[in-house]
């Protein structure tokens, strides 16, 4: 039986925790369908889920090699979304964490922060552009739909705020790991 759920996450770790909670209830995440999370029935706690941000998109040859390695290690790639991939492994194979030392966790969080910086720049650009256009209308230099550009300003400001918050949280994690690393290199 399939079941879908609509859910929106600001935080990757919370999403991963939620997928594992669903798995504990016997609902195994199988992918996205029309931007909803789809689940199939399984034994409760059959799978452990882990999400990761890849350096290159999943179709890129270097990511393909990595995904092949994961498959050879009993790790199934359930779904991908942009650079983001969702893995699962049977819980009876033991503890499952993708990254288990400071160096590799640091690299992963650096990657995450990098991928939030890019949309932040794009939306900052959109914000400035639309603010300038709206201003030129208000001042009467040109004629046009002021409200439309003000709407775009608010939209890009909100997305910018989200991207920036995500970037900040990943940077905090990077700093934390760097501190730990300097003690236990």
């Amino acid at each position: 039986m399939r079941k879908t759920k609509m859910k929106w996450f600001m935080d990757y770790e919370k999403e991963e925790t939620w997928l594992n909670e669903m798995s504990a209830k016997g609902l195994a995440f199988t992918g996205f369908s029309f931007s909803r999370y789809a689940f199939s029935n399984s034994k409760p706690g059959e799978y452990i889920y882990r999400a990761e941000v890849l350096e290159k998109p999943p179709r890129h040859s270097s990511s393909q090699k990595y995904l092949r390695f994961m498959a050879d290690s009993g790790v199934e790639c359930v779904e991908s979304f942009g650079h983001r991939v969702y893995f699962r492994r049977r819980a009876d194979m033991g503890r499952f964490d993708i990254y288990t030392d400071i160096d590799s966790r640091l690299r992963h969080y650096r990657r995450i922060s990098k991928y939030w910086l890019f949309p932040a720049f794009i939306w900052m650009f959109t914000l400035i552009l639309n603010a300038l256009i709206a201003t030129s209308y208000v001042l009467g230099w040109r004629d046009g739909e002021t409200w439309f550009h003000l709407f775009l300003c608010i939209l890009s400001m909100s997305i910018l705020a989200v991207s920036f918050a995500k970037w900040r949280s990943a940077r905090r994690k990077v700093k934390e790991l760097e501190r730990e690393k300097s003690m236990r290199g």
Binding site: E52, Y66, F69, M70, S73, V75, G94, R95, F96, D97, I98, Y99, T100, D101, D103, S104, R107, H108
Partner: peptide, 22 residues
């Protein structure tokens, strides 16, 4: 991964991502 886990009696469990990077 399995060999390392066995050698260290479960103290060192390498994640597949960490192992692949190394």
């Amino acid at each position: 991964m399995q060999k390392i886990e066995r050698l260290t009696a479960g103290r060192v469990v390498l994640g597949p991502g960490t192992l692949y990077g190394a």
